[in-house]
């Protein structure tokens, strides 16, 4: 299983101070599901540009997730 994953395209996901290496070649939405992140609570950014959740994450992509929820104090 691990060996198989290694052969696949891997992408990097960054969220707050966490980082994951995940299998690429599938939409952002699937990756969020796997990481148990609610798509309502984050936005995905690639190369400084906002991407929609059906966008296919390619190998060697670096995706930055931006938390959209804040606790108050405006």
């Amino acid at each position: 299983m691990l060996a198989k994953q290694m052969e696949c395209a891997m992408a990097k996901i960054i969220y707050r101070d966490k980082e994951w290496t995940v299998q690429g070649g599938r939409p952002v939405r699937e990756i969020l599901e796997e990481l148990q992140l609610n798509p309502e609570s984050v936005l995905a950014v690639r190369d400084g540009k906002l991407i929609n959740e059906e966008t296919i994450v390619e190998e060697e992509d670096v995706i930055k997730l931006v938390a959209v929820i804040s606790g108050g104090g405006r």
Binding site: E40, S41, L43, V45, L50, V66, V68, I69, S70, G71, G72, G73
Partner: peptide, 29 residues
């Protein structure tokens, strides 16, 4: 909230990303 954050990103607004350290957030969040 997601739509406002998306607007800020698309417009390139470099907002203060950190929360107030006293954020009473816990319940609101």
């Amino acid at each position: 909230e997601r739509e406002v954050a998306a607007y800020a990103l698309v417009r390139g607004i470099e907002y203060q990303y950190d929360e107030c350290p006293f954020s009473e957030g816990a319940t609101t969040i």
